[in-house]
């Protein structure tokens, strides 16, 4: 980047980019601001942007009226649980495919990816009925199992692309140096693979946290994670913008922060390593 740019040009780009950035971010900002208003101020016309009486009552109210914490915990358990189980199943598979590629490995990976192409409505009915018969409807366990299965292809793919970057020669060197399979995994593979596994974990927690097909269809009041809980606000119940905003802010804040930290891995992970 040896290109010289005048300060004026730079200021111009800065203004334009910040303008567009704020525009895209505005709905989130507006939600956060509204969460600190009273219900009356939330629908006031003209709307007040900053000069209103800031209040925290919506946050306490949301917890008080609907046991917000339970839904938050549901989200945590389901997204983290499905990702961890997925990793336990996927790490050996990705390891084998990356370091012991067979003729069919490429086909197998493409097949796994193709399972993501199946629209969930194609299997909604039987899954719903099976869950009903097994009494898994509206349970954290049931939802965790489903999210594990729908995330598995992405987890395998992500790990595969990360493992692929570990040169096979290093593992062979370990083998020559007298390391058995166990020592190879503990002393060599794991330390080199941990960053990739951590990125995979992070991205899949984000994806599972925001999943909104199965969570809406397979849960009711008890096991509902935040996606389903927030959806319950769509039924009209008078003036509720401020409380909706408070609930929304709490639902998106943790994942937004995680997401901001994982920008780089996000690109890699979601493009199956095709774009880095």
């Amino acid at each position: 980047m040896a290109r010289r740019v005048t300060v004026t040009q730079k200021l111009g780009f800065t203004a334009l980019a910040w303008g567009v950035g704020m525009l895209l971010f505005f709905p989130i900002l507006w939600t956060v601001l509204t969460s600190f208003k009273t219900e009356a101020e939330a629908v006031a016309s003209p709307p007040s942007f900053l000069f209103f009486d800031w209040t925290l009552e919506n946050y306490t109210e949301v917890q008080h009226r609907s046991n917000y914490v339970r839904h938050f915990l549901n989200s945590v358990v389901i997204s983290l649980g499905s990702t961890v189980i997925g990793l336990i199943i996927a790490v050996p598979a990705a390891w084998a495919m990356a370091f012991q590629p067979a003729k069919r490995t490429k086909d197998l990976l493409m097949w796994m990816l193709s399972t993501k192409m199946m629209p969930p409505v194609g299997v909604l009915v039987p899954i719903y009925l099976i869950f009903r018969d097994l009494e898994l409807l509206d349970t954290r366990l049931g939802l965790t199992v489903v999210l594990t299965l729908i995330d598995l292809p992405i987890i395998v793919w992500m790990l595969y692309t990360y493992f692929k970057e570990i040169p096979g020669e290093i593992l062979e060197a370990a083998r020559m140096d007298g390391a058995g399979l166990w020592a190879e995994i503990v002393h060599v593979l794991t330390p080199m693979a941990v960053p990739g596994i951590a990125s995979t974990l992070l991205l899949n927690v984000i994806l599972a946290w925001n999943e909104a097909f199965w969570t809406l269809n397979l849960t009711a009041a008890k096991a509902a994670p935040l996606t389903a809980f927030i959806a319950s606000y769509s039924s009209p119940e008078g003036l509720f913008y401020a409380k909706l905003s408070a609930a929304s802010t709490m639902a998106i804040a943790p994942i937004l922060i995680l997401g901001w930290f994982s920008q780089k891995q996000l690109v890699r992970g979601l493009t199956f390593g095709a774009v880095k």
Binding site: A212, I230, A231, Y233, G259, W260
Partner: peptide, 13 residues
Amino acid sequence: APFFVMPTVSALV
């Protein structure tokens, strides 16, 4: 940022 907002929240907002 909008990518990290769960679909139900963005729809309701």
